[in-house]
Amino acid sequence: MSVPMSSEQSPDTTELDPLGYLIVVDGTRCDGHGICVLRLPERISLDQWGYASLDVEPIVRRSTLRRALRAVLACPNGALELVETLSPSRQVSTEPGVGTGRLRL
């Protein structure tokens, strides 16, 4: 996955549009290397077997998003993904972590 970072970095506290992003893990790819947790400890924890368990709260701060992106890039299995979250009225699935699949940064 390649997501270009904006060159003009806005202040870290900037709220992101529209609602934020979710960092999600593809459970079929995560082998529990645990590298991601070093990049984004406040949102990723490792379960009792060492697999990545992710916070389901959307990311709304640019600083968090930047580190989330580092976590995405750090995973050797490409198991992590950032997805744009949707307002409930636009949601077309009851499953958590299902977004538009598009990522605009």
Binding site: V24, T28, V92, S93, G97, V98, G99, G101
Partner: peptide, 10 residues
């Protein structure tokens, strides 16, 4: 498989 996009969309 993981669905980053709803199946109804893709």
């Amino acid at each position: 498989r993981r669905k980053s996009v709803p199946l109804a969309v893709a």
